[in-house]
Nucleic acid binder design. Structure first.
Ligand SMILES: [Zn+2]
Ligand SMILES: [Zn+2]
Ligand SMILES: [Zn+2]
Ligand SMILES: [Zn+2]
Lengths: 168, 168
DNA sequence: ACGGTGGTGTAATACTATTACACTTCCCTG
DNA sequence: CAGGGAAGTGTAATAGTATTACACCACCGT
């Protein structure tokens, strides 16, 4: 009884102005595969949360997601947090520490990789970019301090190309 | 490298086991200089908050600071947040986004610099290390995306040298 | 049928951060 | 020396983010 939904919920036609995450279905599929690999159910709640994030281009807070899902029936924040935990482990969603919010990811990430989250302070969008240089820098700093690195968080606030060229 | 001076500072309240960042008095002096440069008062509240953080080795949450300052008289969290805002602008305190907590800094930071916060997941201590490589990597990623970078956050969770060599 | 693992729904609570307002202090200037 | 304004304080209330607890249910392997 795991989410049969998610199929007819496509943000299709033309989508938003720019649709980097246009393929919601593919992201759902990725999450479903992760679940299957672990013999865990890919439930409707998980699909609904991922769908909301995949359609949006900006990060959403857990409570914003909760609001969007609260029709027709009220959903509790804790349910959203549970789904977010799963989706983060699945690598389909990231948390933006600087904003305490969450966004969908359509990249594959590899261990040891360092990914830069570029957050536009004007429009709120996030772009991800892996950087070998950053990864090396982190590794070097850690080595120099005798520090055993585990999980990096790299966020860069600034202004995206779109906002820079597009006066409001 | 951070100063490893085993320096004993006098404590105006109760003493503390380990001796943290170099010198509380020097940090106070730095904050005072910043205030003077801007013709702003370096008030008692600001000094008290900075003193608490400078003595501690680990980041503290605003409410933990509030608790420590609430003797002999109860202090409100908002007062601590106000002081933290000032101290962050003065460059004497950083916020750790991944933990929503604050710690004292005894480095001078320069514009364009990228600083890595290495956070031990075992003992909670934070070490700072500037990294040119990380700065270059951030700059490169931004340039490639047409992104105008402003303020980076780089946090690395892991295990510090001390904890790695010191079994619980 | 049974027991165990994992998800759901609900309520309550903990933790983090901000807004509002009345009052004060200090400094500048007229 | 009065007046005004920028900045800080103390207090209360509130907004926003995240977790714990528990009863119940669904699925799976035995
Ligand atoms: Zn990603
Ligand atoms: Zn933008
Ligand atoms: Zn610093
Ligand atoms: Zn440690």
């Amino acid at each position: 009884m795991a989410g049969e939904k998610a199929h007819h919920e496509r943000c299709e036609g033309h989508g938003h102005a720019h649709s980097p995450h246009s393929d919601v279905a593919a992201m759902i599929e990725r999450a479903r595969a992760f679940a299957a690999a672990r013999k865990l159910p890919f439930t409707e709640m998980r699909a609904r949360v991922l769908t909301v994030l995949a359609r949006e281009q900006k990060p959403l807070t857990a409570y914003e997601i909760t609001d969007r899902l609260s029709l027709p029936k009220k959903v509790q924040a804790v349910q959203v947090y549970r789904a977010l935990d799963f989706l983060q482990e699945a690598g389909c969603v990231h948390r933006l520490a600087s904003k305490a919010s969450y966004f969908a990811c359509d990249h594959e990430h590899h261990p040891g990789e360092a990914v830069v989250f570029m957050v536009c302070s004007h429009c709120g969008t996030v772009q991800e970019a892996p950087s070998d240089l950053v990864a090396q820098g982190l590794h070097g700093a850690a080595e120099h301090a005798g520090f055993k690195p585990a999980h990096p968080i790299v966020e860069l606030e600034g202004e995206c190309a779109r906002c820079a060229s597009n006066p409001l």
